[in-house]
Structures are given as C-alpha cells and as structure tokens.
Design a protein around this nucleic acid. Structure first.
Lengths: 304, 304
DNA sequence: CATTTTTATCGAGAAAATGGATGAGTTGAG
DNA sequence: CTCAACTCATCCATTTTCTCGATAAAAATG
C-alpha cells in the first residue's frame, strides 16, 4: 500500500488486456513470461485488489475492478507517451512552447489554418497566443513576451527586430450605406472627411504613441478591437478602415460601402513575421513563419 | 532512451521543483539525499536532456526543457493519485461506476443537485446517466443496463424489482391560453376532452406497451421528450400533462393555463428508486438513492 | 489420453536502489 | 578573510528488486 505502481507495470497490464493473456503479452513485449506474472501480481498487491480472474482458466478475464482501472491505466500510458514525445522533441532542439502574437489585422482564417496545421505538425509544442493592435504586437516580441509576431500595417524599423514579409492584407475605408460619406461621390477631399467621426483602433503601447496612422477626422472614437469597430461602423456611427476579409460579405450584400477618400493611401499593407535579432526562431517557430506565408498566399487566392 | 521513466522519479522531480532543492526534497520525502541526485540524474539520462541547471549554484534552477516537462509530470502524478484513489475505493467495496437511469419526470434541479453532490462525495466513482420515458427506465434496470433507476408515474409491480419511494412529483393538464379547453370552465367532462388533440410522451419499451396512461383524447400526437411536448403545447397545438416544475413559470406568467378536466386523476405521483432484487445497491448507489430522497424533499419546499 | 498451452512458482544471478560517508563548491555571518 | 553551514555529486557496501530459465500444475485441444 506504500510503494507506487510502476509505469512498466501499467504498460504490462494494458498489454495483457490487449493481447488477452500473460504469455501473449510476454511475447509482444519480448520479455519472459514470469516477468508478466510477477508484475501483475505486484501491481495487484500494491493496489490491494485482483485485476484478473484467473482461477485455472485459459484466458484471464478482467475483474470489475480491473475494468474500472483500465481507463486510468490507459490515461497514464497515454500521458507517458506524450511526455516522452515532448522530451524527444526538446532533446532535438524543438521548442517546448511557441508564443505567438498576432496582430488584429491577421485574417482569422489564416490564423486558424496556421494553428491547425501547426498542431498537427508539432503536437508536442504548446502554443501561447496573444493578439494585439498595431504596436502592441511588436512590443510583445521586443519584451520577449512572444517568440514570433505577425504584424501588419506600417512597420516601424527597430534595430532589435528582424522582419520578413509573409503576406499582404487590404484595408479599406468603409461606412454604412446610411452614412453621409457613402453618398459623397469619389475622391472626397480631406476637408470633408475631417468633418465626420472616424472609428479608430486605439493602441495602448508606447511604440506608436503619438502616431496614429491614418487618422484624418477631427473627432475620433477609439476602440480596442475590430469587432467593436465593425459594429459601430455598421450602425452608422462613423467611418473607418477595415480589413477586406472582415467586410467582404458586408460589401457584397450592401450592409457596408467602400469609401473613396482623397487622403487615404494605398489600401494594401504588407504583413511581416518578426522576431528579435538576439533570439532566432527555433524549428517550430521557423516552420510557423513559413506556414504563415503559404497560408496568406492561399487565402489571397480565394479571399481577396 | 529505452527504459521508461518511473513515477517515483517524476514525483521526485516535482518535489525538487516545489521544495527548491535536492536536499529539501530528500527531507520532505524522508529519503537520503543521494537518492534524489541518483533519481534526477537517471531521469535526465532517460529523457536525454538536462532538467536542472546546477553548475555550482546553491539552488538548482529548472531549464527550459524542465519547465516544459513539468506540466507533463504534474499530469502524470495527478493521474497516479486518481488511479490510487479509485483503487482504494474499489478495494473497500466501492463501485467503479454507477449507472443511473432517470425518468423524464425527475425534475432537472433534483437530478443536478444529486449528481453534483455525488461527484463531490465519490470523486472516484464514475456515473453513466440514461434518461427514459415511463417504462424504459424500469426496462433498463431489469436488463442490468442500469444499477439504479428513478421512475415516476404509475409503478408496475414486478417480481424482480425492489422499489422505494424517494419523493413526489406533480403532473398537471395544461394548455396554451389560446386553446379552447382553456376557456371551458371547471370539470370539463370526458366527452369534451376527447375532441381535442392530446400531446403524449410515447413509450417505446415493451413494458407499458398497450397501456398508455391518461390518454383521453381520440386524437393524440406522440413525442419522445418533454421539451418537444412543452413546445407543442405552448404553441397551442394541443393539451397534455406536464410536471409542475417545468411549467411553474409558464403558469405564473400566463403562457400556459391549468385545465380542470373531469377524468384526470389526482395529479401527484410518487417517485421511486428501483433496483433488481438480485443485485443490492453498492455503497455509492445506496448513497445516491438516499440523496435523491433528500433532494426531492428540499425541492418540494421551494419548488412545489 | 496425449499434446499443447496456459499461469504460478522457485532459484540463481544480474541489475538497480538505498543510505551513509566523503568531497568540492557556494553562501552568508562574524 | 575565515569559518560554519549548507548545497549537490560521487563512491561504496548492502539490500532490495528484477529478470530469466526451468519446472510444475492445470486447462484446453484434438
């Protein structure tokens, strides 16, 4: 009742159940048959109950207790395999965890596609996912709170950051059809634009403080996430830039309209994978950066 | 790289992390300090990586790999404790699992209250929950598909079933306010009742076949669950009997009205805990039956 | 009934774990 | 700086456990 059971014993237990007998399990595990008897008998003694009914019958049959403990044993061996797989990965230089910060502008389909395939390719590598607006993503990477960042919009060059283009993203000025700017024709001059409320994603990081890009209106409302921005614009409360993938359906079905504003710069932004230059990507992070590139490319085909 | 790590090693690993040192872990585990060194060193060799950074420093510090594997180790030891707890329970005669079949008429608050406290009282005993209408519950117990049944309505005596009353339940004939019967005054005679559609829970088991209780209408619709029945009656498609706890709010807020039908028998049903007489309740099932009794009593106070 | 195949058990040898002693190194107080 | 107290690594002798092979008893098979 004192000593722990052994993972070896549990594995033997499972093998006996699977193979249907002690001798068969011994053959499968390449060990002497007496070892199986010995192990099961020890395990039973340690747990204080009989696992198999084997009163002179050919095939030992699981007792009720054995059946109940079977699933625990399976869990344990499953956990062991996970642990060993992770250890093997770590020993080969794989990261134990990749911390990713993805900008709000990263299309959700791209993000989910990357994460899904990542999980399949690196089942033993954990993922920690942050999302950030504009500067916060770069900030997280600089602070070593994240190993890899996917950022969009205007890149501020930084001596400690290494960036690499992985895709493009379109951002359009949009408004509800009921909004005055929707009827203002093409190339609305800046003086007119400034008279209307602009909904802007606010950036709380110091990195872009004092630099609010593409803020043209005198009066702006600041929100912290795209969903809120989308809701406000849809309600006709103001206009603002939105990534194409998020408003594509709205535009097609007339719930939103694209604005043609004079001062608005080209609507295609590059998306970059960034890291600090003192800490190169590990194998998994490197794979992930590549995967983002292909995911952006594939998304572009059908989504933009 | 071949031999499995030992649960003992993993426990030592965790203790070292918790206590912050090899010696401290040795004291905590009442073992010699050399054992700790030996175990950690073996574990590291088996996993093929260093878990602690301990180059001549006072306190060994977890490596990155060690941090990643820590959670796996915790899972393993947690699983071990679960397994041992279950084994201890089984050794003392506890069931590994209780299979409960609850009649549709059992008020959900009663069911959840019982299951919640059961989980707390018997964390190592699994629960398999079936729900059944009328006869199917008794059927499941008779077939040994369930260890304990909570059935309501009319009890059909059976020589192999042992039943014990655990509570009461009220069933009322109800209809939507828009339904003709709602305006028919008190003690509507059977001839009138029969003219209207009745919504009935259909019972697919052979136990009550040919005996549809309280079916008074010429035209009936059969449904298999209370939620559907509730929806149909609410929509004014017919009338039918519903347990009080399910329609209490509807009655108070006027979405449904109670009917006063001449042929409808007393609306209070007893609820029974049943088992087969060849298989007495184990400790957990017995506790559960008692708990149903107190839960029904407590529910009656506030709920009926 | 003979044969094959099962699990249990025993004994000897191999392997591994244990506790204590020792040593090198670090930390912190005086 | 010196010393005491503490850290972890290592070695050693002892004990414990594991392993294999052989054997026995029992059951299924033909």
């Amino acid at each position: 009742m004192d000593a722990h059971p052994t993972l070896d014993q549990l594995e033997i237990f499972l093998t006996v159940v699977e193979e249907g007998g002690f001798s068969a399990a011994a053959r499968k595990l390449n060990r002497a048959q007496s070892v199986i008897s010995y192990a099961i008998s020890n395990l039973e003694a340690q747990l204080g109950l009989k696992l198999f009914e084997r009163a002179g019958t050919r095939q030992p049959r699981l007792t009720e207790a054995g059946t109940s403990l079977l699933e625990d044993a399976r869990r344990m061996i499953g956990g062991l395999q996970m642990l060993r797989a992770r250890a093997r990965g770590l020993a080969q230089g794989l990261e134990g965890e990749v911390r990713l910060v993805a900008d709000l502008l990263v299309p959700m389909p791209v993000l989910t596609a990357v994460l899904d395939s990542f999980r399949e390719a690196f089942p033993t590598v954990g993922v920690r996912l942050l999302t950030g607006a504009l500067g916060t993503s770069a900030e997280a990477v600089l602070n070593h709170d994240a190993d890899i960042g996917i950022v969009g919009g205007v890149m501020i060059p930084h001596p400690d950051l290494v960036s690499r283009k992985v895709g493009e993203n379109q951002v359009l000025p949009v408004a509800a059809p009921s909004h005055p700017l929707a009827h203002a024709g093409s190339s609305v001059p800046i003086a007119v634009v400034r008279e209307h409320f602009q909904i802007v994603i606010s950036d709380l990081s110091r990195r872009t403080e004092g630099r609010n890009f593409h803020v043209h209106a005198l009066n702006t409302w600041h929100v912290s996430d795209l969903t809120t921005k989308h809701a406000l614009i849809s309600a006709g409360l103001g206009w603002g830039g939105m990534p194409l993938w998020l408003v594509r359906d709205d535009l097609e079905e007339g719930r939103l309209v694209e604005l043609s504003l004079e001062p608005y710069p080209p609507s295609t932004y590059s998306m970059f994978a960034i890291r600090t230059n003192d800490k190169p990507y590990g194998p998994a992070a490197s794979w992930m950066a590549n995967r983002f590139e292909t995911a952006f490319a594939a998304f572009g085909w059908t989504g933009a």
